[in-house]
């Protein structure tokens, strides 16, 4: 334990350097491949009607929140515009398609998802196989600080030696570390266009994601239901005049101001 392990120089020349280089190259290739494959997808067109419907929902929420500040006639007009039985905006059938419909009618979406998965997962698997075939079982170096034995699983993947000090790390662990750690370096090279892996995982888990992405559409519930809910909420909203008695309050404010001592210039 007290003696350091002496590592062969060839390990550096034939494992450390080629491993680092091949990971970096793989990430570069992936970056460019994704850019080529997803080139058309990022400029997905937004339908004006969709924007209109989303904004109508937002505006109706505003109306419900602040109805008391405008005269009642104005409120009635707006409620009729949104929620009238036949002609209201929310009584129309939504032009937006729900997520399932979109999947069926829009083959683009399917292929986009395929492309994303292809560019994300396939190289990962290939690279994993490549690395574990050529580079597994080497000890590459030593961490300059002591660690508890529970880190063995993380740092000594591929080398099953209980007697080995935990601070030595192996080539497979180094590979995993680099896989996630090199993103910062890529960001320096490509600025914003770097593929964000964590973002992609999050999207694949269905935990939200960009509104433009195919997964974002999935999180979008049925727009017709949203219309229906908003219409019901509007119907329930009563106009309560929030500026009731504001004149009296204003008179009090002004009189208090008049009584106050004159301001110094």
């Amino acid at each position: 334990m007290t003696h350091d392990i002496v590592l062969d120089r060839d390990v550096r020349d034939w494992v450390l350097v080629p491993l680092t280089a091949s990971i970096f190259l793989m990430m570069l290739i992936r970056q460019y491949a994704t850019q080529v494959l997803m080139g058309g997808a990022s400029a997905a067109k937004v339908e004006l009607k969709e924007v209109r419907e989303k904004q109508a929902l937002a505006r109706s929420q505003l109306l419900r929140a602040a109805a008391g500040f405008i005269p009642e006639s104005g409120f009635r007009q707006r409620r009729a515009y949104f929620a009238a039985k036949e002609t209201g905006v929310f009584s129309q059938k939504s032009e937006q398609k729900s997520a399932q419909e979109q999947m069926i009618t829009n083959p683009d979406m399917m292929s986009n998802m395929m492309k994303q998965n292809l560019s994300g997962i396939v190289p990962q698997i290939a690279m994993g196989a490549f690395v574990s075939y050529f580079f597994s079982g080497f000890i590459l170096g030593k961490i300059p600080f002591p660690l508890s034995p529970s880190f063995r699983l993380m740092l000594q993947r591929g080398v099953d030696l209980p007697a080995l000090d935990v601070t030595y790390f192996t080539s497979l662990s180094y590979y995993i570390l680099l896989l996630f750690g090199l993103r910062g370096l890529l960001t320096l090279i490509f600025r914003d266009a770097t593929i964000d892996e964590t973002q992609m995982y999050r999207q694949q888990m269905g935990l939200g994601g960009g509104p433009g992405g195919p997964m974002g559409a999935m999180a979008n519930p049925d727009p017709n239901k949203a219309f229906e809910a908003e219409r019901a909420a509007l119907d329930l909203t009563e106009h309560s005049w929030k500026l009731e008695g504001i004149e009296v309050a204003a008179v009090d404010t002004l009189r208090a101001r008049l009584r106050a001592p004159p301001r110094l210039k």
């Binding site: 500040f69 500026l243 504001i246 404010t253």
Partner: peptide, 9 residues
């Protein structure tokens, strides 16, 4: 009146 009230006159 609301503007007067909000602006404190």
């Amino acid at each position: 009146a609301a503007a007067v009230e909000l602006s404190g006159g």
